[in-house]
Design a protein around this nucleic acid. Structure first.
Lengths: 247, 247
DNA sequence: CGCGGCCTTGAGAAATGTCAACTTACGTGG
DNA sequence: CCACGTAAGTTGACATTTCTCAAGGCCGCG
C-alpha cells in the first residue's frame, strides 16, 4: 500500500533487472538508457551493493507527494505516472516514466509529486542517502544525473507550451508522436504506439477531459490518421499527424 | 540585435555586479542567491577570470531558440522572459528569470527557448566551454548547478499544473503570490508586488489571453483583493488571494 | 497636441467542459 | 457456459469558460 510495502521482492543487493545468473547490474537490459550508464564496469558493483530491486503492481502508488523523499528510483520495466493532485481532486500528470527513466529528483527532501504504476512496473530503488554518497564520490555520475534533470526540464518546458498554447487536436497528435519516439528509443521503431495508460491519464497529462480525448481520437480514427486498437494506436498517416502536431 | 551584440558593456574579466572598487565577484550583490554561491572566496577569482559582465536593454533578445548554446548566464539585475514560439506566432513563456537565476541549461548544445530582457537587465555571461571546464573541476559547483536545475524542474511541474488544471482566476492569484515570494527572496517582503512584465507576458506565461488577464485583475481589484498600480499590484487581502490560488 | 503602445471593456463566437446515457470488454460466480 | 456486474470508453446534448474581434481610454513622448 505504501512506498516500501509496494516493493514486493525483498532481495536487497540484487541486480538492476538482471536476467538470471550472477546478480549484477551489468546484466541490466536498460542500463545503456538509464543513469547507471555513467558508471564503468568496474564501478557497477558499487551500485549493485546499494540497489534494491522491486516490483509495483498496476495502480499501486509508491511515491506520495509531500512525503519525505527517502528513495530514488530507476524504472526498468513498465510505465509510471507522476502527478500532482489539487485539494479538490483535480489531477495533473506531470510526466510518464518509462524504462531507463530516473525518478526522485526532489527539493527540500520532499517529493513534489505522487507516482503510481500504470501497468506492472519493475524498478531499482536506492536509499537516497546511500545514492547521494555514491553520487558525491563520482562526479561523472553527478554529471549524468544533471543531464537527466536538464532533459526533464526541456521536456517540461515543451509540455507547458503544449498545454498552454495548443488545441486539443494538436495536443493529442503531439502526444502520440512523443509516445512513439519514446518507445522507439526503448524497443525500436514501430507504427503501433503502445498506450498502457488509460484515457483519463492522457486527459490529465494534456490538460483535457476524458471526453475531449476520446472524441479527438475518434475523429483522428475517422479521418484515417490513426487506427485505434486495444492498449495502443496504429499510426496510418504519419505526415498528417506530424502536421497536426506542429501547426 | 543578436546575442553578443546585445551585451553592450565589453569589459571582460570584470566583476559579477561589482559595486565599484576592485573588480571581483566577491562584491556581487546577488552572489548568495546565484550559482556562484557554491564557490568559496578562494575560488571566486577563477569565475572572475572568465566572466563577462553585460547589459541588455528592455525588449532585446539575447538568446535565440534553436541557436548554438555557446553561453550561459546569471541574472544580476532586472527580469528576463524565457519563451517558446510556435510557427504561427503563438508564444508560451516558460519562465521569468530574476536576479540570482541561472540561464542556459540546454540540450544538445542548442537553446530550447528564446530570452528577452523585460526591463533593463544586467547579467554575467560565460562561455559555455570555459564554464564547463570550471564546473568539471569543481564537483560542488556541479552539485549546485544540479540543485538549480532540480528547482527549475519543480517549478516547471507546478506551472504545468497551474496551466493544465486551474481556472483563469486561480492562475492569476497564484502568479501574483509567486511573484511576491520571488521578490521577497531578492529584496525582502512587501505587499506591493512589482510586475515589470506587461499583460501580454503574463497572459503568455499563464496560457491565457491578454483580455482574460485584464478582466481577471480588474475583478480582483473590484473585489478589493488587490489594488492595481503602475508596474505593480498591491495585495490588500492576502488570505483571500491565497484561498483563490489554492482552491 | 497628436500619435502609438498598452490596457480595459463589451458583445458574440468557439472550444472545451459537464452531465448523462449507452456500449463494450472482461472477469466472476452461479 | 451463461448472466451479471464493473470499469473503461464512446457519444450526444447542453453549459460554461475563455477566446476573438472591435472599440475606446489612458498616458507618456515627440
Amino acid at each position: 500500500m505504501t512506498t516500501l510495502a509496494a516493493l514486493a521482492t525483498p532481495s536487497p543487493r540484487s541486480a538492476c533487472a538482471r536476467s538470471g545468473g550472477p546478480s549484477y547490474c551489468d546484466a541490466c537490459k536498460v542500463r545503456p538508457l538509464a543513469v547507471c550508464a555513467a558508471l564503468e564496469a568496474g564501478e557497477l558493483h558499487e551500485l549493485d551493493a546499494i540497489v534494491h530491486q522491486g516490483r509495483v503492481a498496476a495502480k499501486e502508488t509508491f511515491i506520495h507527494q509531500g512525503e519525505d523523499a527517502t528513495s530514488v528510483f530507476s524504472v526498468v520495466e513498465g510505465t509510471v505516472r507522476l502527478y500532482k493532485l489539487l485539494s479538490d481532486g483535480r489531477r495533473q500528470i506531470v510526466g510518464f516514466a518509462m524504462p531507463g527513466d530516473f525518478l526522485g529528483l526532489a527539493l527540500h527532501n520532499r517529493y513534489g509529486f505522487s507516482a503510481d504504476a500504470v501497468d506492472a512496473v519493475a524498478l531499482c530503488k536506492f536509499d537516497r542517502a546511500e545514492f547521494d554518497r555514491l553520487v558525491s564520490a563520482k562526479p561523472h555520475f553527478l554529471r549524468r544525473l544533471h543531464e537527466f534533470a536538464t532533459h526533464e526540464l526541456v521536456i517540461a518546458q515543451e509540455q507547458m507550451t503544449l498545454i498552454g498554447r495548443r488545441s486539443a487536436e494538436e495536443r493529442i497528435a503531439a502526444f502520440l508522436l512523443m509516445m512513439r519516439d519514446r518507445w522507439a528509443r526503448i524497443s525500436g521503431a514501430s507504427v503501433t504506439v503502445q498506450l498502457p495508460m488509460q484515457r483519463l491519464d492522457i486527459a490529465d497529462y494534456l490538460g483535457l477531459t476524458i471526453e475531449t480525448v476520446s472524441r479527438t481520437l475518434t475523429r483522428l480514427a475517422r479521418d484515417r490518421v490513426i487506427l485505434i486498437v486495444p492498449e495502443a494506436v496504429r499510426i496510418l498517416d504519419e505526415g498528417r499527424l506530424a502536421q497536426l502536431a506542429r501547426s
